[in-house]
Nucleic acid binder design. Structure first.
Lengths: 124, 124
DNA sequence: GGAGCAGTACGACTTTTTTCGAACTTAGCA
DNA sequence: TGCTAAGTTCGAAAAAAGTCGTACTGCTCC
């Protein structure tokens, strides 16, 4: 991916009853080239796709995915997705749970998440 | 972008009256992660968007864009877009003209090209 | 308090991507 | 024939991204 400037990071106001989201770009600062770059890679696509399809009552901590990668690598990818505006992350005690910013992404880039959801993870 | 394997390259049969396209991946070999990676970058997005919006009677040679970059850099980006399956290129005498593979991309990744066409090229 | 755990931060290293000059190829044309 | 123009190929350098070990933070529970 090429060198595209990331959108400015800001802290959102805390919703009632939930831990505040970690710093993330505002909806209006989402950039298509940045989001596409963040999504270009099987691991990243897999994270987002599974969050979309296997959504449950609560957001998922990053250990939930069961990737066979060192923790520091996973932190790196989750952070990249958050800073690009794809994921929102909240701290619940020890664990940091992630959800896809569905509304924001649909508002700014309609159809994009459908492509991710329809992605065929294990092809040729 | 991360290291994603490019789809296999094949040569398409020559359509009547047109020069044969340069080697490109078949529709069924298009990979979302590869296409997204190829599109993640302002220059690449700009190329595709302009081909979509300012489409004319003939495809455009890559000098038509008027980018202030060395020719070898442009070759690189056009080739990357072609190998990812975003562009089709044909050789007309000296010049190599490009078009977006609209039908193929709409078939495999519906809505993606709309996002590119709607991209706001010069934002914050 | 102290053990244990989820996850981060830092830093080093590797791999990939980008950038671009210089030399080369080929078509068209005088 | 030989010039010119469009674009390629090669190669090297620089920048960016990915990988991952180690050390650290901070919460929870005993």
């Amino acid at each position: 991916m090429s060198s595209t400037t990331r959108p400015a990071i800001r802290v959102l106001p805390e919703p009632p009853g939930l831990p505040a989201p970690l710093p993330e770009p505002a909806v209006e600062d989402l950039r298509l080239e940045t989001v596409l770059g963040a999504l270009s890679g099987p691991l990243r696509l897999s994270i987002v796709r599974r969050l979309l399809l296997e959504r449950e009552e609560f957001d998922h901590p990053c250990g939930w995915f069961g990737f066979d990668r060192p923790k520091s690598s996973l932190t790196h990818h989750f952070k990249a997705l958050r800073e690009a505006g794809v994921l929102r992350q909240r701290q619940y005690g020890l664990e940091r749970r992630s959800e896809v910013r569905v509304d924001d992404l649909n508002a700014r880039f309609p159809g994009l998440l459908d492509l991710v959801a329809d992605w065929d993870e294990r092809p040729a």
